[in-house]
């Protein structure tokens, strides 16, 4: 509906960026047919839950150019909302979803309105500080937030009367949520709103001079990222069955930022690739957690120095340069990921 406002050609090219992601997700949804191990399913579920949050971060960082180091805090607000609602009001999974999305969006607004008054790097530190503060508040929250031990979450997740708590079913549900998140973020990117955000990213003053309300749109983008994070938080809380403050402090936020940058924040395939790579690379390379953290860090530094647009875009660029050297450069956003994404993600 949004893409149809543009000329036909660009609508098709916009669809072409989404299709490979959906194809890959469809393939991922078929994995249970191979009867994978429970360990694989758990890893994939946590990766998927991260990817949902990453799609929010990609709207914020990739489109608007605002880096948040407090994204895990927004996930945490969602997770705690779900846990507290389930405990006090016996609210189920599906009611917790909108409630948590709303809570995270509200928290994002409360943090965003003051934080976005200060520019670029100061904002990053502000989000970092708010993330740490949230963890401290949750730790000192007494029985209400379960203090340092956190909260337990009981109660099955049902869908049309069917119990979804089974690992395979939960896996399929998370894949569906990831697909929804990808479509939502694709719709935002290809809407006039997305174009407005990119205008702000490229040149804030120019955007303001064109009558764009920069401040309001930045807060808006932060709130949108909060909605994604809140939903991811509900899925996380119901998957783990137990949440604690340290899961949502600043270092998890750093890892989220790392994933989105490794994948490439501006591409629709980026969050998916980043989330999957970071979750499965240690498995493939057979690394222990300490070694894998070192590898992530080195990857992040290498990606920033060598492939600032992220891995997928970088590989895509190299690929296209090999295929068609001499052709004029395309715009970065229109990178044709169709030829590279599937092989890259499966690695």
């Amino acid at each position: 509906m949004i893409a149809s406002r543009q000329p036909n050609g660009s609508a098709i090219s916009a669809l072409r960026s989404l299709l490979p992601v959906l194809v890959v997700l469809a393939l991922i949804a078929l994995v249970p047919l191979l009867s994978p191990s429970n360990r694989f399913l758990s890893l994939a579920i946590s990766a998927g839950i991260n990817v949902i949050a990453l799609y929010g971060l990609s709207v914020l960082f990739g489109q608007t150019g605002i880096l948040s180091m407090g994204h895990a805090a927004l996930v945490g607000v969602g997770a705690y909302t779900a846990a507290i609602l389930a405990r006090d009001l016996c609210t189920g999974f599906w009611l917790a979803l909108p409630a948590a999305a709303l809570a995270s969006a509200l928290f994002a607004m409360i943090v965003g309105i003051p934080s976005l008054r200060v520019g670029g790097h100061h904002f990053v530190i502000m989000t970092f500080a708010f993330g740490q503060l949230l963890a401290i508040v949750l730790t000192n929250g007494g029985d209400y937030t379960g203090a340092a031990t956190g909260l337990d979450l009981v109660g099955p997740v049902t869908l049309f009367g069917a119990d979804m708590s089974d690992l395979t079913r939960y896996y399929l549900m998370v894949v569906a949520f990831v697909a929804a998140a990808a479509v939502a973020s694709w719709a935002i990117i290809n809407s006039p709103y997305g174009r407005t955000l990119r205008a702000i990213r490229e040149n804030e003053r120019l955007a303001a001079s064109l009558g764009i309300n920069v401040g309001r749109h930045k807060i808006g983008a932060f709130v949108v990222s909060g909605i994604f994070a809140g939903i991811s938080g509900v899925l996380l809380a119901h998957f783990l069955g137990h949440i604690s403050p340290t899961q949502f402090a600043s270092f998890p936020s750093i890892y989220l930022a790392l994933m989105v940058m490794i994948g490439g924040a501006r591409l629709i395939a980026g969050p998916l690739a980043g989330g999957i790579l970071v979750a499965f690379l240690p498995e493939v390379l057979n690394l222990d957690p300490v070694q894998s953290r070192i590898v992530y860090g080195v990857c992040l530094i290498a990606v920033i120095l060598l492939l600032p647009e992220g891995l997928i875009a970088g590989v895509g660029q190299v690929f296209r340069r090999l295929l068609a050297s001499g052709q004029p450069k395309q715009e970065r956003e229109e990178l044709d990921t169709a030829s590279t994404t599937p092989s890259e993600v499966r690695r």
């Binding site: 880096l67 180091m69 790392l258 940058m261 300490v290 992530y296 860090g297 992040l300 530094i301």
Partner: peptide, 20 residues
């Protein structure tokens, strides 16, 4: 800004090299 992001990667690397 890239320097800042790189420093985040360095945090992770340095901490875990020491742990290792």
């Amino acid at each position: 800004t890239n320097g800042f992001i790189v420093s985040l990667g360095l945090i992770v690397v340095l901490q875990h090299v020491v742990v290792l």
